[in-house]
Structures are given as structure tokens and as C-alpha cells.
């Protein structure tokens, strides 16, 4: 089994992840069709689009989280550091160690704040107390959470507020120093102030990491993202009033372009609030 490479080979250029003709199926059902996106290194890329357009599905395809869904199947290539993540001999465990994830609903473990952060490093086999202490401090500082919790590291992660929990989850993802961080609507359950904190954090993290975020909030995409991919739904009528729906990538461009002068008429209607 070949290891997932930690660093990019010289040939891979500016792209962190390249999706080539990616199709995702759930069982027999096509969920997303022919997605081609090149995700820029150390930039924030936002996936936007109406509900059911498959943006979360594509995001989860990037670190093989779809493997955990029974019957899910990905066709096409997801190239990371010159390797196809869906190629033979690629271990999803290694993929996820390089490409971390933050979920829609904050999901700290029912353990102490310290143990939440130390979870990842311990998985990798780090046992030294001093080392773990350092990682915990650095990760919490990196997630702007250190000052708020440094005296309660033994407290349960569940005792924190919603916004703090989500930052804890980000700190937990950062603790194993991945290359890419995927965020699946990380602010959808948070109030505006907590959302602002997370957005500031993302702008800070992007100096070190590549970030891909799925969001329902177009203002958020406008505020934080360098690039934006707009997904939409295609449908085909079957007989007896049933239809078949799948998601497609409509337009992918720098955020300013998407919001100010979209090339596609459908993008313009969505940005203008006509549907979605």
C-alpha cells in the first residue's frame, strides 16, 4: 500500500486538489455528475448552490468520507499531490489524516477539552505528555480559543457554547496539522457573532492551510472565499410524474467574478435571489 504523500511533488503546481470528471452515486442513483474543479493551494474555496445540488456530497468525496455511507461510489479522479485518492492501494485512513474535516453541527467528543484536542495526535501514536500539552496549546491558540478555555482544559467539551464547540472542532482538526481542511456548513447552527469569529479564524487559517467550505450563506461566501463554485440541479422527467435529479457544477471562478459578473445566466439568477 502506497502512503499518501504529505508534500506536493514539484510537478503538481498550484492546485491542492484536482477533481476530474467526478461522479458520485448512491447505490444506482446518480447524485453528482461530471464535476471538474481545481482547488487552489492556501486559498478558501466555497461551494454554493440550492439544497440538493450535491455540494456536500462533492466535499465529502474529497477525503473519502463517502466511503462510510453504505452504497456510495465515486467515479472519476480526485488528484491530491499527484495521486488519485480513489486509485487502488489508497487507504482512506491516510487520506483523512491529510485532509481533515469540520462538520455542520459541532461534534466534540464527550471528553475533556484537552482530550478532544489530543485525540488526533494520540491516534497517530504521540504519547509524551509535554508534546501533547504543546500541541493542545498551539491548536487552541490557532483556533482563537486558548484564552477562553486555558483554565478549564479538564472541562467537558460539551460544556462550551455552540460557537466555542465549533472552534474546538476546528482546533481538533488542526491538531494533526492536515494539509487541507474541509468545512461542511460550519456556521449554519451559529449566531452572527459566533459566525464572525469562525470567519475571522478561517481567514487566519488559510495562511497555512487550504480550505474548502460548503455554505448556504452567499454573503459568507462573498466575505471569506477566494474562489467560488456554484452547483445546481438538473432534472429529467420520467413517466408517472416522477423525476430524476442530480447535481452539476455550473460555474467556478474567483469569488468577485461569480458575484459581480457571472458568466452563466443561472448563476446570475441564483446570486440575485431568484431561486435556491
Amino acid at each position: 500500500m502506497s502512503a499518501v504523500k504529505a508534500t506536493a511533488p514539484a510537478t503538481s503546481g498550484a492546485y491542492a486538489i484536482e477533481l476530474k470528471n467526478v461522479n458520485v452515486f448512491y447505490g444506482e442513483k446518480l447524485a453528482v455528475k461530471d464535476v471538474n474543479v481545481n482547488i487552489q493551494r492556501q486559498k478558501i474555496t466555497a461551494f454554493i448552490g440550492p439544497s440538493g445540488c450535491g455540494k456536500s456530497t462533492v466535499l465529502r468525496a474529497l477525503n473519502r468520507m463517502n466511503d462510510l455511507v453504505l452504497g456510495a461510489r465515486v467515479a472519476g479522479e480526485v488528484i491530491y499531490n499527484g495521486q488519485n485518492l480513489y486509485g487502488p492501494n489508497i487507504d482512506p485512513v491516510e487520506v483523512r489524516r491529510r485532509i481533515g474535516m469540520v462538520f455542520q453541527k459541532a461534534n466534540p467528543f464527550p471528553k475533556s477539552i484537552y482530550d478532544n484536542i489530543a485525540y488526533g495526535p494520540r491516534l497517530l501514536g504521540i504519547r509524551g505528555k509535554q508534546q501533547l500539552d504543546d500541541i493542545v496549546e498551539r491548536s487552541l491558540k490557532g483556533a482563537f480559543l486558548w484564552d477562553e478555555v486555558k483554565n478549564d482544559l479538564k472541562k467537558s467539551g460539551l460544556a462550551l457554547s455552540g460557537g466555542q464547540q465549533q472552534r474546538l472542532c476546528i482546533a481538533r482538526a488542526v491538531a494533526i496539522e492536515p494539509d487541507v481542511i474541509l468545512m461542511d456548513e460550519p456556521c449554519s447552527a451559529l449566531d452572527p457573532i459566533a459566525t464572525q469569529a469562525i470567519e475571522e479564524l478561517m481567514r487566519e487559517l488559510v495562511k497555512t492551510y487550504t480550505i474548502v467550505i460548503v455554505t448556504h450563506n452567499m454573503q459568507q461566501a462573498q466575505r471569506v472565499a477566494d474562489f467560488t463554485a456554484f452547483f445546481s440541479i438538473r432534472k429529467e422527467m420520467l413517466n408517472e410524474g416522477k423525476d430524476r435529479r442530480w447535481g452539476v457544477l455550473v460555474e467556478y471562478a474567483p469569488t468577485a467574478t461569480i458575484f459581480n459578473s457571472p458568466a452563466n445566466e443561472e448563476t446570475e439568477r441564483y446570486i440575485g435571489g431568484e431561486f435556491g
Binding site: 468520507m65 462510510l68 481533515g100 467528543f109
Partner: peptide
Amino acid sequence: VPSSLRDASYGMGAT
């Protein structure tokens, strides 16, 4: 056990 906890663990690269 909530599946969100399993997701969190797998998302960290746990076996």
C-alpha cells in the same frame, strides 16, 4: 451512539 461522533473520529484519520 450519535453518528456525528463516528464521523468526527473518522474525519481525523482514525482507523
